[in-house]
């Protein structure tokens, strides 16, 4: 599993749930400001990633993830650690 694959899964989830073109979601895309994702959107994303990769998003760490790239970094680091 590569970081690109993780990024691709995040992009696909957001594109499907928020009805945005996948190509328009970049590393620096901000969840709240650019995608108008609210708390429920972010919970759904973390649930998808927790289930897909067998990791957990502690609430305090999840709150610090602001962009798509940061989410990919978090997931990739946890999967590599485990």
């Amino acid at each position: 599993m590569t970081r690109e694959e993780v990024l691709g899964r995040i992009r696909e989830h957001l594109a499907t749930e928020l009805e945005v073109e996948p190509s328009a979601i970049a590393e620096e895309t901000r969840f709240r400001e650019d995608l108008e994702a609210d708390s429920l959107d972010l919970v759904e994303l973390t649930v998808e990633l927790e289930d897909a990769y067998g990791i957990r998003f502690p609430d305090d760490e999840a709150a610090r993830i602001l962009t798509v790239g940061q989410a990919a970094d978090f997931v990739f680091a946890r999967v590599e650690d485990s």
Partner: peptide, 11 residues
């Protein structure tokens, strides 16, 4: 609901 056009960062 829709994401405002032009608000999403591009590659």
């Amino acid at each position: 609901r829709s994401v405002p056009a032009g608000s999403v960062a591009t590659n």
